[in-house]
Design a protein around this nucleic acid. Structure first.
Length: 516
RNA sequence: GGCCCUAUCGACUAGUUGGUUAGGUCGCAACUCUCUCAAGGUUGAAACACGAGUUCGAAUCUCGUUGGGGCUACCA
């Protein structure tokens, strides 16, 4: 059996959107499952829309996710430009493969499958406008091509002259008339389209002397011996053209199989997920932060505190499921169980809550030490005076309450800084005459307590409060207020054990003098 | 408009050969635990878009309608 070779082929026109990351992920999982190759190819045949930095962004995003290309990118994370043993098909950037495509385009003209067209963009736009006015649409196809300026209507010597003297020409594919193209999609099954509904797509652009996606894509997939093309659903309407191109080149024998992935949809309303939805609804649409030329910042999952494993797991389940009830999978486990047969055909709405839940699940699976390190990475200055044991105790106290490491400080800052003020609502609710009498007595009870551990504190407090009939709620909530400045949070005994006797007594006394 | 894809709880989905009390997860609600808030535990509300047809029997097969999505560039 042939080795599986799949590719992810983004265009460097800006940051990679999470839908793109998902496509890359599915390609990667599919390749790795069979011990195949995952190839990265940069499809930069649109010189107009090129955005500097996007190629690096794609590579860094994939790296963050743990999706490392086998071919196309070297160990330094650079796109390979010169062929070598590991990257025999270099260059992997289409702009650097220009010389390759031209002859294939010419070959199609020679075989009668394509033709030169001399119509200017202005002329075509005028035709489109005209058709629109008559509530129809202009299509460059078998009906119109014979009345337009191309090598099918212009005498051969004239064509020769114009090709030599002018640079205003394109090469168009000559779509056959009234033929049914029978296609097969690994996710969708059989698809049939009549060629008469298709238009004569441009294969070679005058504008930048480069092939269009359609030509470059087919040529490269063939030359790079791609076995399966897994791409977004937006390419499904082009599939008949691509089949016809394989046929015209005589490459049907080893034409890759195709799988079209449904698109990611907005969480609300209509349409596919876009950059603006992230800004509007407050969640990232990109794996990594992106800053455009105007200095506008788009949020990224990485910068927003997501673990890459959680992000990948969440993305994998958006449009795929293993058919079992397990929902937590590492990348390695996903490689094991992934299958295209289980990819869902309909579009999936992105859900921010589920993404957060995944992060929480992964946070819970981290060791305390890993979380201490992540916490320190975020709050270095403030945590510096405290040793790992103390920070670890703090982390263990609040880890169950967090979705993200960045929430840690808010949840346990009181363990590192004594409260400067006390929540007025809590003071009003608990700091009453009877409690003012009781708290000093409670403080006194703690003074000789040894060891000052959670269970010992808990036992002493509970016994005394109950036997004196002071009221558990009143006393405990007041203590919590004095220890952390707020009236909701972890258990009082837990807090005390971490802070230590001296600090606890000091905080209680401070509060008493402060509040009077 | 034309062409193509698609249709199960609010969301993600299971239900691959027609017979299930239509299952799970997120979210939501209630109860429970409890010194508060979380977390946990238990429970609940919640779906086969609609209409025909085939069949003893349809979420599942067929057709149609409707909804959703994509494409319709010398963009990918």
């Amino acid at each position: 059996m042939k080795q599986r070779r799949v590719r992810f082929a983004p265009s460097p026109t800006g940051p990679l959107h999470i839908g793109g990351v998902r496509t890359a992920l599915y390609n990667y999982l599919y390749a790795k499952q069979a011990g195949g190759k995952f190839i990265l190819r940069i499809e930069d045949t649109d010189s107009q829309r090129f955005v500097p930095g996007s190629e690096e962004y794609v590579i860094e995003s994939l790296k963050w996710c743990g999706i490392v290309p086998d071919e196309g990118v070297d160990k330094e994370g650079k796109v390979v430009e010169i062929p070598c043993e590991e990257h025999p098909h270099a260059p992997y950037r289409q702009s650097q493969r220009k010389h390759i495509y031209r002859k294939y385009a010419e070959q199609l003209v020679a075989s009668g499958n394509a033709y030169y067209a001399f119509d200017t963009p202005e002329e075509l736009n005028a035709l489109r406008k005209e058709a629109e006015a008559q509530k129809s649409s202009f299509i460059y196809n078998h009906e119109s091509r014979n009345s337009l300026k191309n090598s099918l209507t212009i005498p051969a010597d004239e064509v020769e002259r114009r090709l030599a003297e002018e640079d205003g020409w394109t090469i168009r594919f000559k779509i056959p008339e009234n033929r049914v193209v029978k296609m097969y999609d690994l996710i969708r099954g059989d698809i049939e389209v009549n060629t008469s509904t298709l238009d004569d797509k441009v294969l070679w652009k005058r504008a930048d002397e480069l092939p269009t996606y359609h030509l470059a894509n087919i040529v490269d997939d063939h030359l790079m011996e791609i076995t399966e093309v897994i791409r977004g659903e937006e390419w499904l309407p082009s599939l008949p053209l691509h089949y016809l191109l394989y046929e015209a080149f005589g490459w049907e024998e080893n034409r890759p199989q195709f799988a079209h992935l449904s698109l990611l949809l907005k969480p609300d309303g209509k349409g596919k997920l876009s950059k603006r939805d992230g800004d509007r609804l407050g969640f990232p649409v990109f794996p990594l932060q992106w800053i455009n030329e105007d200095g506008e910042i788009s949020h990224g999952y990485r910068e927003d505190g997501y673990f890459p494993e959680a992000f990948v797991n969440m993305l994998a389940f958006l449009g795929w499921n293993p058919g079992t009830e397990q929902e937590i999978f590492t990348l390695e486990e996903l490689v094991e169980v992934f299958s295209l047969e289980r990819v869902v055909k309909s579009g999936a709405r992105f859900n921010h809550d589920k993404a957060k839940w995944y992060n929480q699940e992964y946070l819970r699976r981290k060791s305390t030490q890993e979380l201490v390190e992540a916490f320190r990475a975020l709050e270095g200055e403030r945590l510096a005076p405290f040793d790992d044991q103390y920070v670890g105790a703090a982390v263990e106290l609040i880890r169950e309450r967090a979705y993200f490491v960045y929430e840690f400080w808010e949840l346990c800052s009181f363990l590192f800084e004594a409260p400067g003020e006390y929540d007025p609502a809590g003071v009003k609710k608990f700091w009453k005459d009877d409690v003012k009498e009781i708290i000093p007595q409670v403080a006194h009870l703690l003074e000789d307590l040894e060891p000052f551990s959670k269970s010992v504190i808990e036992e002493r407090l509970e016994n005394q409060i109950r036997s004196n009939d002071w009221g558990m709620g009143k006393v405990m909530n007041t203590l919590r207020l004095f220890l952390m400045g707020r009236n909701s949070g972890p258990g009082v005994a837990d807090i005390m054990a971490i802070l230590g006797k001296k600090e606890v007594l000091q905080r209680i006394n401070n509060a008493i003098t402060h509040l009077g």
